[in-house]
Design a protein around this nucleic acid. Sequence first.
DNA 1: ATTATATATATCAAACTGATATAGATAGCT
DNA 2: AGCTATCTATATCAGTTTGATATATATAAT
Lengths: 182, 182
Amino acid sequence: MQKDTLCLGLLSLGPRSGYEIKQMFEGPLSDFYSLSFGTIYPTLNKLQSEKYVSCKQLSQSKKPDKKVYTITKKGKDLMKENLLGDASAYIRSGNFGDQIKSEFFLLLLFAKYLPEETLETVLNERVLFLQQKLEQFKYDGPVPSDLQALRNEKSITFIRGLATTLIESGLNYMEKNRGKLY
Amino acid sequence: MQKDTLCLGLLSLGPRSGYEIKQMFEGPLSDFYSLSFGTIYPTLNKLQSEKYVSCKQLSQSKKPDKKVYTITKKGKDLMKENLLGDASAYIRSGNFGDQIKSEFFLLLLFAKYLPEETLETVLNERVLFLQQKLEQFKYDGPVPSDLQALRNEKSITFIRGLATTLIESGLNYMEKNRGKLY
DNA sequence: ATTATATATATCAAACTGATATAGATAGCT
DNA sequence: AGCTATCTATATCAGTTTGATATATATAAT
């Protein structure tokens, strides 16, 4: 997805600063996508200069100033147009679409070059790690207020449920079939 | 995973040209990882100049010349060293690890901006697409001989099985819960 | 006092991709 | 025979993106 469309989409959930957009990528979106500051800040500047977002400079008492961006009518129109135009391309992506870029799968591919006890440790730690992920996805407690907007999206509920299901069946498969790697 | 380690790993399965390594990424590895020609060719040149691989220029009668690379003892040692050293980092990656980069999940996140009939089409096509993927992973027929080496790896059997399981439970979830998106 | 951490924006070298260039061969169509 | 398309094969490069670093202020912990 174009960085422009993505930033507009996140701003459509409510006004935010670049730093806060990054926090979304590191929090609730961290398993699905990310953009770096090096992409976010130039994108917001470009969107502002082309009037897709407006910007208010806020002086905060105990924190540095921040620039809060709000999506404009023009920006919402562009976002909708881009989503519609590119929807068909996104059907074939990620999490069994084109690419997963899984370093873990690559490591398994070359598992025969690891000492057996290393492989054992690796698989044990992977299981632990996935169990932790599962807890994270299942956790329904309070989140920082500026992230609650995301949490409340119907689509986030759907995606969290899907992620939970996928991790559970992956864990199950690993526990039943890890013997095949030796 | 470092491109060096990855290329050495693929060459450890048998001597290959840069073009043939790319074919692996576009064939049996396409759902898990990829590198472009712009990365593969410079990497092979660097590995050769540092004696991690040797190179034979082959004149072919009906095709362009090709450079076939073979991993050396020094190269195999480096590969094993790197795999061991980085193994713990790869435990927390992809397919529920750090990042999926799923354009499809992003599209769902903004599903409310799509007309209802578009969303319906998108979900239907995603189901069809995943069903096709499932067939691909289940297919056990003949593959080009230079890719058979990969197919025969124990780890590939494990990973294909895992992918099949994940797609199946993902499909199942989507069919049962798609109503939650409207 | 010092170190660590958090908020906040900005920049940049290094890495990587996607596209394009080059070149010989084959295959199908008219 | 000529034309277009596609495949094998290597190479290069502009444009994009990341990961790291710089800058600045403030709080919390040791």
